[in-house]
Amino acid sequence: MVNALNVEPRTTAMPTLVMTGRENDTVVAADASGSFTLSEVSVAYGRDLVIEGVDMYIAPRSVTALIGPSGCGKSTLLRCLNRMNDELGNVKVGGKIMLDGQDIMGKDSDPVELRMRVGQVFQRPNPFPMSIYDNVAYGPRTQGIRKRSELDDLVEDSLRRSALYEEVKKNLKKHAFELSGGQQQRLCIARALATMPEVLLMDEPASALDPISTQQIEDTIAELKASVTIVIVTHNMQQAARISDQTAFMLRESMDEPAHLIEMSETKKIFTNPDDKRTESYITGRFG
């Protein structure tokens, strides 16, 4: 496989520290890590190669935006990071993906454990058909936490972090489907946070929401940055510019060839002075 761009990852090794502890009801993220290093990552659907030669470094506790036209493989690449592509069947991922220096695709790496460290928020709000409380407690219960007080704390904490707590604290037993779309999406964020992940993947989390709810989600992301690494796929340029620290631009130039990572650097640079002509034309709206 040819590495089209020959981009060297800027950093490779980061300290390997797994953090799930909490102190005095505030989340301690001081030594939490959550960095991703991708090298030569490629994805194929059956025989169809859709992504090729992606090298990328995602710094801990930063917000990274993945942008590019629809069909350029942003979401597919995102799903590589928690191995959700495994669940789609017929998808092959090549290359190397390291989470804090550990190979997540190795033989002894367990996708189930990986996903407890790398949470995901989906495009459309998808709360489980159960109460608000049970939704948030779902992940911790999966991890074997049964103690009521511990769960109570985790639920409250996670709801606070996703900025939903004040709106729902009176009635945590309410069915999740009774919440508005924006509230449901913040519930899904809380649900993902409750397992204390180091990384949160977001696949166009605001695309199904109204502007006010979108604003709330963006505020939430800004707050969360202090404690988790966030990788967000978005088709909204303004959103990427507003919330991300670094931006990666992906492009599939024709349907006969796979998508590549065209350029990745600080968000400010991408939006003001990109290195690549193609990035510039996409940003200025020539690609749609």
Binding site: R115, M116, Y138, G139, A192
Partner: peptide, 27 residues
């Protein structure tokens, strides 16, 4: 049951069976 719901559970680190038992079957 929407596929998204299964993915949400799997993405939280649930095994397939737990996903089926706790989310898909009740729904």
């Amino acid at each position: 049951v929407p596929q998204d719901l299964r993915h949400a559970s799997l993405a939280l680190g649930s095994t397939k069976w737990r996903t089926v038992r706790k989310v898909v079957l009740p729904a």
